[in-house]
Amino acid sequence: MLSISRKDLYGEIWSVGMTKAAKKIDIPYDKLKKACVDHDIPLPTQSYWSKLYMGNEKPSQPELPKAEDNVVITIKKAKKQQVKLAPKKIVKSTKQKEKQESSPLKTSHGKLSEQEKSYFSYFKQDENRLIGIYNNLKINKTLSSKPHKVIVGYRKKTQFYREDQLRIKSASGEIFPEVLPFIDSLFKALEKAGAKIVTKYEETEIILKDKYTITLNFKLPCRKINLSPKDERYSTYHTFEYETKGTINVEIGYKLYWRNWGRSEKNINQTKRMSTEDLLRKVFVYIFSLPEIIDEREKEYIIQEKQRLKEEEKRLILQENRDNEYTKTKQLINNSLNYFYSKLVQEYVTTEMEKDSEEYRWAMEKANWIRDSEKHPDDLLNNADKTLMLRYENK
């Protein structure tokens, strides 16, 4: 059992926060929160810590109601693990367990694996420099006195929705202290590696070697908290809030020059067993693994494009040959019909008309015009008239 005055408990949670206070006094988080609510102790919100961390001005802290009422609060402590029953064995097994749990993180903190080295060796001239930057990756507990210019712009909090500035997506609208040092360290490391940072309203672009465009989106997963009617923040239209989980998710993709609107994406999510430094190393390595993938995609695209152009050229040649054949065949049919109708008219004129008459001569001229209107043009009629008369287009 823990006995602590109401005033001291208030001071503890507002100095270090609920989570750290629970660990410090060895009390389960939910029991600590219930004790505060039951004894009318105001709880610090995520926005309070976020504003405090931004450092523009110290946010207002609510006063303790009835501060003179110095009631002693009794809370049950967390159950201790049975470590003391067999100190040697259990301590040993605990260390082994911690070793096993931390083993996945050793890859990121220790030496580069062969696969990770291959990503950096893809940039032959910069391989050693990139490995050096990777080995020196670290995150300060607090934001440096000279943060990256993108962070400076973000902290001003003056950006509009579509303004080209850093975006950190969070349903709660708040960030926790570790986020900005993480982004600051990542951007500075990338610039040391020769990359350019370009912030846009929908994402952040990393330009490598003026050739590769990598996209980043920073997301803070949140949990939904239902408010009870007793809560001061509760109303008919405000029954729940979002609270950040304290982890960072980074969405990484890349753009292709022939398809700027499309990108391939991968989410690198920070787990409970992954520190922000582990996440930083993982993101840094993955960014430098993408150029080789982009080049492979480009080679595939070039091969496909060459094949497409060949097929298109063949299709155009085939279409041209077909059109020529169609035109020649159509002309042949038209000439044949013209010849047929011309012969038909001549036979009729020879049989039915007198040779020395004016009508005979006129009819023979028309027969010649039907056969070939270019060689025997008519003063009044044209090819359109002939087509309409013979109607062989429809036939």
Rank of each mutant, 00 (worst) to 15 (best):
E277Q: 14
I302Y: 06
D40N: 08
I168Y: 01
T74V: 04
L32A: 07
K141L: 13
M274C: 03
K299G: 12
D26Y: 10
Y341R: 12
Q165E: 12
L220N: 01
K282V: 14
K156G: 10
C36F: 01
L9C: 00
E313H: 11
K95T: 08
K196M: 12
Q319K: 14
I41C: 14
K188T: 14
S185Y: 02
I151R: 05
K84T: 11
K117Y: 03
E374L: 09
S108K: 13
K230T: 11
I41V: 09
L186V: 00
K146E: 15
I252W: 09
R391G: 11
P28E: 10
L316P: 07
N335R: 12
T387P: 04
E365K: 06
I207T: 00
G173F: 01
E358Q: 14
E365S: 13
Y242M: 08
T199G: 04
K23L: 06
R315K: 07
L208G: 03
A21P: 05
I303S: 07
K88F: 03
I168W: 01
Q346P: 10
I27P: 00
A367N: 09
P221D: 02
S235P: 09
R6L: 08
Q307L: 07
P62C: 02
P147M: 00
T199C: 10
G11T: 03
S172Y: 01
T199I: 08
A171P: 14
I268G: 00
K328N: 15
R315D: 10
Q125C: 11
T244C: 12
R129A: 14
K138F: 05
L332D: 05
P28D: 05
L390S: 01
E305L: 04
S373K: 05
E325H: 06
E57R: 12
D184L: 01
L344N: 15
I175D: 03
K97M: 13
G262R: 06
N260Y: 06
L190Q: 00
Y154C: 04
E352L: 07
C36Y: 01
V16F: 11
S113K: 10
N135E: 15
D385T: 05
M353P: 04
E296A: 11
K299V: 13
E311F: 09
N140L: 09
H376V: 10
L279R: 00
K92C: 10
L137I: 01
D164C: 07
F240C: 09
K209L: 13
K330F: 15
Y392G: 04
S15D: 10
I214N: 01
A21Y: 07
Y48M: 09
E354I: 02
P291I: 01
Q96D: 11
E320H: 11
N382D: 14
K192Y: 12
P181A: 04
Y234F: 09
D40M: 07
N56M: 15
F284C: 01
Q96S: 06
